[in-house]
C-alpha cells in the first residue's frame, strides 16, 4: 500500500503542478514582460478575473472555447493598455494605479458576470499523452491542456527574444535605462505601453484557463490570488521567462500538495499544507527583498528599485 500511495502522491503532485501552475505561467510571463519595460502592473489579479469572466461568457455565447480565449486576451489587452496609458501621464504611480485596476477588473467581472454563473460553456480540449499506459492515474495526469504547451513555447520564445532580437533589446534598454533609449531615438513610453498591453493579454489568457479548463467554471470565488502571487513569482524567477516556467510549476505543486497528501491518507495538519503557496510567497519575499541591496537581474527603471 505504501508504494502505491507514493506513486499516486507524486503523480498528483506532478499533474497538479501542470494543472494549477498554467495560469501562474501566463500571468507571470505577462508580468515579466511588463516589468522588463520598467513598469509594475499589480492589477494583473483584476485582469485575470476579468479575463476568466470574458472568456467564459464569450465561449458560452459563441460556442467556441478558443474564441473565448482570444476574447479573454482581448479584455486583458484593453485593461493592460489602460494601465500603460494612465501610468504614462506625469506623476501617476504605477503601483497605486495597479491596485485601482485590480479592484476595477474584479468589480467589472463580478458585475458583468452575474448572468454567466449558471450556464455551461464549452471547455478547452486537452491532449492525452498517456494513452500508452493502462493506469488510469497516469492517463489522467498526462491529460494536458493545449494552453500549457503554448505557455511553454511562449516562455522559450520570450527567453530567446529578450536576448537575441532587436525588440527584446529595446524593451530591456527601456526598462534598464530609459534616458539611453531616448538618446538612441526610441520612445520609452510607447514601448512601455505596448509591453503592459501584451502583459495584460497574457494575464487575460491565464484567466480563461481558469474558467474554461481548470477548474472550468465561472464564479466569483474562482481566483484565489493567482494574479498577485504571480508578481512575487516574477521576482522569484529573477525576471527570466524560462525561470518563470519552473517557478510556476513549483507554485502549482505547492497549491496541489494539500489535496494530494490527504487523498493518500496523510491528513493531519492539512491547514498547513493549504497555506503552502502563501508561505512560499512570503519566503520568496523574505529571501529576496532587502532594503539595502538591489536585486540581481532587476530592471533598473522599476519603481521598486528607484
Amino acid at each position: 500500500m505504501g508504494d502505491l500511495d507514493l506513486v499516486t502522491f507524486l503523480l498528483a503532485l506532478l499533474a497538479g503542478a501542470v494543472r494549477v501552475g498554467t495560469p501562474f505561467l501566463f500571468v507571470s510571463l505577462g508580468e515579466c514582460l511588463t516589468e522588463k519595460s520598467g513598469r509594475i502592473n499589480l492589477g494583473l489579479e483584476g485582469i485575470l478575473v476579468a479575463g476568466a469572466m470574458t472568456g467564459y461568457a464569450v465561449a458560452y455565447l459563441s460556442g467556441s472555447a478558443w474564441t473565448g480565449v482570444l476574447a479573454a486576451g482581448g479584455a486583458g489587452l484593453l485593461l493592460g493598455l489602460l494601465h500603460g496609458i494612465v501610468c504614462s501621464l506625469p506623476r501617476v504611480n504605477d503601483i497605486a494605479f495597479g491596485i485601482a485596476l485590480m479592484l476595477l477588473g474584479t468589480g467589472l467581472a463580478f458585475f458583468l458576470g452575474k448572468a454567466f454563473i449558471q450556464p455551461q460553456a464549452p471547455m478547452l480540449p486537452s491532449i492525452s499523452l498517456g494513452a500508452w499506459s493502462d493506469d488510469g492515474r497516469v492517463r489522467s495526469a498526462l491529460n494536458i491542456n493545449m494552453l500549457f504547451f503554448i505557455g511553454v513555447a511562449l516562455a522559450i520564445f520570450l527567453h530567446w527574444g529578450l536576448r537575441s532580437t532587436r525588440w527584446g533589446l529595446v524593451l530591456r534598454l527601456v526598462g534598464d535605462h530609459s534616458e539611453s533609449a531616448q538618446a538612441l531615438g526610441y520612445r520609452p513610453l510607447r514601448v512601455r505601453v505596448m509591453a503592459t498591453a501584451v502583459g495584460g493579454f497574457l494575464a487575460g489568457v491565464g484567466g480563461s484557463y481558469l474558467s474554461l479548463y481548470y477548474p472550468g467554471s465561472w464564479n466569483e470565488g474562482l481566483s484565489s490570488g493567482q494574479g498577485l502571487m504571480a508578481v512575487a513569482l516574477v521576482i522569484f524567477a529573477r525576471w527570466q521567462p524560462l525561470n518563470c516556467l519552473w517557478a510556476s510549476m513549483v507554485f502549482g505543486a505547492a497549491g496541489a500538495i494539500g489535496p494530494a497528501l490527504q487523498s493518500v491518507g496523510i491528513s493531519s495538519g492539512y491547514y498547513l499544507y493549504s497555506a503552502a503557496p502563501y508561505i512560499l510567497t512570503m519566503a520568496v519575499m523574505l529571501a529576496t527583498c532587502r532594503p539595502n541591496r538591489t536585486l540581481t537581474g532587476a530592471p533598473g527603471e522599476l519603481s521598486l528599485n528607484r
Binding site: T8, A12, P215, S263, Y271
Partner: peptide
C-alpha cells in the same frame, strides 16, 4: 479531503482528481 474553506474551486478540482486517482 478538507479543502480549508467554503469556496476554493481550484483546490476542490484538485481534491476531486486526487480522490478519483
Amino acid at each position: 479531503i478538507f479543502t480549508g474553506d467554503w469556496s476554493l474551486p481550484v483546490r476542490e478540482a484538485e481534491a476531486a482528481n486526487g480522490l478519483i486517482d
